[in-house]
Amino acid sequence: MKHDNRVPVNGTGTLDTSIWTGYLIRPKGDMRRYTLRMYETLQEASDVAQERADSHHRPYEVLATCDTSQRIIKTIEPRKSK
């Protein structure tokens, strides 16, 4: 059975991460409320963030869903086109 990888936003406008642990990606500085896809590994999230950064020509952030001292794990910059 495949599980749903979307992480809902709770009524206070923060991510409801009480059940899931993993990684999220979003455009850098984007604080809008919407459902996000959760990735199980940092590598998978980083790969998708790099693809999106390249295609949208803007930086993307990889965030941890669990409570950590550093919520944003890394920022992925778009690669320069040749």
Rank of each mutant, 00 (worst) to 15 (best):
M1Q: 11
K2D: 12
K2I: 14
K2Y: 14
H3F: 13
D4K: 12
N5P: 08
R6I: 01
V7D: 00
V7H: 09
P8L: 05
P8Y: 14
P8A: 09
V9L: 15
N10H: 10
N10W: 11
G11Q: 03
G13F: 03
G13N: 00
T14W: 05
T14F: 07
T14S: 06
T14E: 14
T14D: 10
D16E: 02
T17V: 14
T17A: 03
S18F: 05
S18N: 05
I19T: 03
I19G: 02
W20H: 14
W20C: 15
T21A: 08
T21R: 15
T21Y: 11
L24C: 01
I25W: 10
R26N: 07
P27Y: 05
K28W: 12
K28T: 10
K28G: 00
G29D: 03
G29H: 11
D30V: 07
D30P: 10
D30R: 06
D30N: 10
M31A: 15
M31H: 07
R32T: 10
R33V: 13
R33D: 13
R33A: 08
R33S: 15
Y34R: 05
Y34S: 13
T35G: 08
T35E: 15
T35I: 01
L36W: 15
L36S: 01
R37P: 10
M38C: 05
Y39R: 12
Y39I: 01
T41H: 04
T41I: 04
T41G: 09
L42E: 12
L42R: 13
L42W: 11
L42C: 08
Q43C: 00
E44V: 08
S46Y: 06
V48P: 03
A49L: 01
Q50N: 04
E51M: 08
E51Y: 03
A53R: 13
A53Y: 04
H57I: 00
R58E: 14
R58F: 00
R58S: 12
R58I: 15
P59E: 08
Y60M: 01
Y60H: 02
E61D: 12
V62Y: 02
V62M: 04
V62R: 00
L63V: 04
L63I: 02
L63P: 06
L63F: 06
A64C: 02
A64W: 00
A64Y: 15
T65C: 01
T65K: 14
C66T: 15
C66M: 13
D67L: 11
T68D: 04
S69L: 12
S69H: 14
Q70E: 14
Q70G: 06
Q70V: 04
R71P: 08
I73L: 09
K74E: 15
K74Y: 07
T75S: 11
T75L: 05
I76Q: 10
E77A: 00
E77K: 10
P78I: 02
R79M: 13
K80Q: 07
K80V: 07
K80Y: 05
K80R: 06
K82G: 08
K82E: 10
